[in-house]
Design a protein around this nucleic acid. Structure first.
Length: 477
RNA sequence: GGCCCUAUCGUCUAACGGUUAGGACAUCGGCUUUUCAAGCCGGUAAUCCGGGUUCGAUUCCCGGUAGGGUCACCA
């Protein structure tokens, strides 16, 4: 690393919701900046007004805030390169365009869209690649002073100075290359006055002093264009760190909105912890080189290394996310867990004793809401509907079950201290007198909860209290 | 189609050219003297194919195959 301060940026376009792909790019840029105590910039690339989706800027900010990926410069907070919306920086792009024009490296597109479309079709029919530069106007060979003056409602094109293969180095992929056809006379400024991505992001990265560009691998093939602009502007390009694609869970294609990519805020709604989401995203394409998998955000900042990022794509895997989330939930304090769970339970269930019982069977907070919604927890607050035949277990007859329950009632009635520990003691003593413990324990569980499977019935009994417990046992007979 | 990228258990991945190819998730089995869950212990499971280079290739090179990306007045 040079002595230059690290500056990274996340530069989304506001064209819809963010999914894991975009957020991981933001995360890696953020981690790299934090690791070197540098600057992380949020810049909105809103140069395509037609594709802009209402509300996406708010959405992007919300996602980053949820995850704690705070930006040092950008919307809402400003910074030395204000404004951070490309649509508000049009003069800047024109100024840079003028530099290229003056050098004879940019020219007005003399063709209409229809004409270009015809060139393209013709090339296609002849089964050769379409390259705009094959149709350059005659005057482009003459002196730059004789180029027509740019009329700003016509597109401005880059005059590719030299047709050649391009080689460059990438922090993740190592040596990369592209053939000469990757370099063409592309558009710098559109006829509506807005710059193209290819031009605007370079101008901004130069202006904002960006040192490391994290981006998806879909940009590999346009890198020669970027490099040509840097060269034309006589500016040294930043380091590129190209990230491998995130693949759809059940396919080999890049994860996209059509392949079930979820809005990142869905994960918030489902009750994932932001730190778990970050941990998961970081492990999707990166590893520390040892066996650790669970990281706090601070640990990631310390240990993350862009050079250890994977070059092959990784599939989205929500099962692993669940596991990572549970690991992070286990790092929470008792108080935090209690507060979170109680906040998700209805008023009638505001009992801290329920917390450990519920916590052990979930991977994310949303599962609590699900249990409530599906009535799985109703037995805590109301007597279950008992279907008597379900009480029968291990070939017990109905008489044996009734007898077992009566005995349970007898011994529990004598208990003064109705704690789970005492209840368990009593009931286990009793159960040991049966040829199978299940012969009494199963009917008790069922009488209390109306279910075959449930959390620890002794704790449930304690929560219900002596009267209610005995009443339920009686009711089942 | 041109150009480019990628290829290790089902999934995510580790392995200066020399390892019984390691770990994690999932799965399966056992334990936790009641179920489920959790936890612990254990098992099954992988180097895409073909050539080279080398004493030796998962690793380096070439070819094939497969998958992906990209070829816009979209980013």
């Amino acid at each position: 690393m040079s002595d230059k301060k690290v500056v990274t940026r996340f530069a989304p376009s506001p064209t819809g919701f963010m999914h894991v792909g975009g957020v991981r790019t933001a995360l890696f840029a953020w981690l790299w900046a934090k690791k070197y105590k540098g600057t992380f910039i949020l810049r909105i690339e809103d140069t395509d007004k037609a594709r802009e989706v209402e509300g996406s800027i708010e959405h992007i900010k919300k996602c980053l805030r949820w995850l704690g990926l705070n930006w040092d410069q950008g919307p809402d907070i400003g910074g030395p390169y204000f404004p951070y919306f490309q649509s508000e920086r049009l003069d800047l792009y024109k100024r840079y365009a003028q530099i290229l024009i003056n050098k004879g490296l940019a020219y007005e597109d003399p063709y209409t869209e229809e004409e270009i479309e015809n060139f393209r079709k013709k090339a296609e029919e002849e089964k050769r690649p379409f390259l705009y530069r094959d149709y350059r106007p005659e005057w482009l060979r003459g002196e730059k002073e004789n180029y027509p003056k740019w009329n700003e409602n016509k597109p401005l094109r880059f005059k590719t100075p030299e047709i050649k293969s391009t080689k460059w180095n990438d922090l993740v992929y190592g040596d990369l290359s592209a053939g000469p056809e990757a370099l063409d006379d592309f558009i710098l400024i559109k006829s509506d006055g807005y710059p193209t991505y290819n031009f605007a992001h370079i101008v901004d990265d130069i202006e904002m002093g960006v040192t490391h560009v994290m981006r998806g691998q879909e940009f590999i093939s346009s890198t020669p264009k970027f490099l040509a602009i840097y060269e034309a502007l006589e500016v040294r390009p930043p380091f590129f760190a190209t990230l491998p694609p995130i693949l759809a869970p059940d396919g080999k294609k890049k994860l996209g909105k059509r392949d079930g990519a979820k809005d990142i805020l869905e994960y918030e709604k489902e009750g994932f912890l932001p730190s778990a989401m970050i941990n998961f995203l970081a492990m999707l394409g990166w590893n520390p080189g040892d066996d650790r998998e669970i990281f706090t955000v601070e640990e990631l900042v310390k240990d993350f290394d862009i050079c250890r990022v994977q070059t092959s794509g990784a599939r989205m895997n929500e099962t692993k996310l669940d596991w990572i989330n549970k690991e992070h939930m286990n790092m929470l304090s008792k108080n935090e867990i209690e507060r979170s769970i109680l906040s998700l339970l209805p008023n009638e269930m505001q009992n801290p004793k329920l917390v450990p019982l519920l916590f052990e069977r979930i991977h994310k907070w949303g599962e609590i809401e699900k249990l409530v919604r599906e009535g799985e927890l109703d037995f805590f607050i109301k007597q279950p509907d008992i279907k008597k035949e379900k009480l029968i277990f291990k070939n017990s007859s109905i008489e044996e079950v009734k007898d077992a329950l009566s005995q349970a009632i007898n011994c529990l009635s004598k208990l003064n201290d109705f704690s789970a520990e005492k209840i368990k003691n009593e009931l286990m003593n009793l159960a040991n007198k049966f040829d199978s413990k299940g012969k009494i324990l199963h009917p008790v569980r069922f009488a209390l909860t109306g279910k075959d499977k449930s959390p620890d019935p002794f704790i449930i009994a304690e929560i219900l209290g002596k009267d209610e417990t005995i009443s339920r046992l009686q009711n089942a007979i």
